[in-house]
Design a protein around this nucleic acid. Structure first.
Lengths: 218, 218
DNA sequence: TCAATTTTTTAGATTCACCTAAATTATTTT
DNA sequence: AAAATAATTTAGGTGAATCTAAAAAATTGA
């Protein structure tokens, strides 16, 4: 079994690997983990000793197969608990992250799988991210950033890229939520801001916003 | 906030205080925590520095009001999660302890209270132990040991004193469960063993068994 | 290319929660 | 009440996960 800290590092490396295909740098990990580069080097050595990552000095890390499996298991639990909190306990989608960060470390295969069943095998978490199944399989599905849509185009809002409390509360305040249709009414060449329509509301959003919303085109 | 280890010590002291009214000894705590007496002394000092226990060298510990509050909060969470595991996820009562030992340390008042609501404010956990409410209030209710019943007397089985996997599985195997009526058909003076009747079954049980079952007389 | 800068690693400390072995205090027994 | 025994504490050490400061390697750019 892995320590809480090890699991958090594995998860962080997994997430960063999507951006850093050729190896996750020490500094990037330190930034992600809110810690110092020297602490990261220490932990990387431990993970490397356990064959959870492949590491050569000064060359960044990559997850091994075992490391990837462990990371996905933690992510599976995190997302299942998020669904539980929202669907069963009435949490808002901006309140679940912190608690799920704790719940994701509970060690019990039976618990995870029974929870999955209880929730009726959800495919997505409250932020639109895919939930790995018991074998670690999951697919993101084809989605694009809202910012990629041109004037007049539309799609269904299916996920958020940033799931910070601040961003989610901004979306709530402006009536933007997953599953609804978005149409681009106008797009400003100068700053890439958009006027979008969701249900009855017309909302003006900055480029920052449109690059953090995932859309599925119809 | 308290560390995982601190919470476990507080819980252990709370439980032991029922037997050791004049202060919990270092050795008793070491036994309960499956650790060495010297480690216990270390931790007691830390808890004492935080005013969670009252401690004078060589005199055992007692929980302070703050310590009691913290211990009860952990116990509340433990028992609520046990109810969740049995009622919602289909765990058997002998499978819940280990997982609840982990879940009891999750820190989120909202989670605890929403879980309580979701479970419809249960008063007892699957082993018949009372669940403290959000203010830490709970009552054990009047219950006696089955061993205290005399021949011909009867009552409802309302709880187990030992909730080890072994004992619970013994009860399952013999069809003994909470909520059912028990009648003492015979009681052996020599070894205190009993012949009891529960529903249609007549079961011969040792004194060890009858001193670990709580009964409510009618 | 080689000097400056940035990134990463090493060295040495710190805290928590544990350990063993030895010393001290309390309790029992004779 | 002194000696033997038991309980508890102290002293010193360990590993995990962090830190700061300094050294070493890699990268950048003049």
């Amino acid at each position: 079994m892995f320590s809480l800290s090890e699991e958090n590092y594995l998860k962080a490396i997994f997430h960063l690997e999507t951006s850093y295909k050729s190896g996750v740098s020490t500094n990037a990990l330190a930034e992600e983990m809110q810690t110092k580069a020297s602490s990261v080097t220490d932990m990387i050595k431990r993970l490397s000793d356990k064959d959870l990552v492949n590491y050569k000095k000064y060359q960044g890390v990559k997850l091994s197969e075992a490391g990837k499996k462990a990371a996905i298991e933690v992510i599976r639990k995190h997302r299942l608990w998020e669904v539980f909190l929202v669907e069963k306990l009435g949490f808002n989608w901006d309140e679940v992250h912190e608690v799920a960060e704790q719940l994701e470390h509970i060690k019990s295969e039976k618990l995870t799988n029974e929870l999955d069943k209880f929730l009726e095998y959800p495919k997505k978490d409250p932020h639109g991210d895919p939930i790995p199944d018991a074998n670690g399989k999951f697919t993101v599905g084809d989605r694009i950033l809202l910012s990629a849509l041109r004037k007049g185009e539309s799609g269904i809002c299916v996920g958020v890229k940033d799931s910070s409390v601040e961003f989610l509360q901004y979306l709530d305040k402006n009536g933007i939520s997953l599953g609804k249709e978005i149409r681009v009414l106008e797009k400003e060449d100068f700053d890439q801001s958009m006027l979008i329509k969701m249900e009855k509301n017309e909302i003006r959003i900055s480029h920052q916003i449109s690059t953090n919303l995932f859309i599925k085109t119809l």
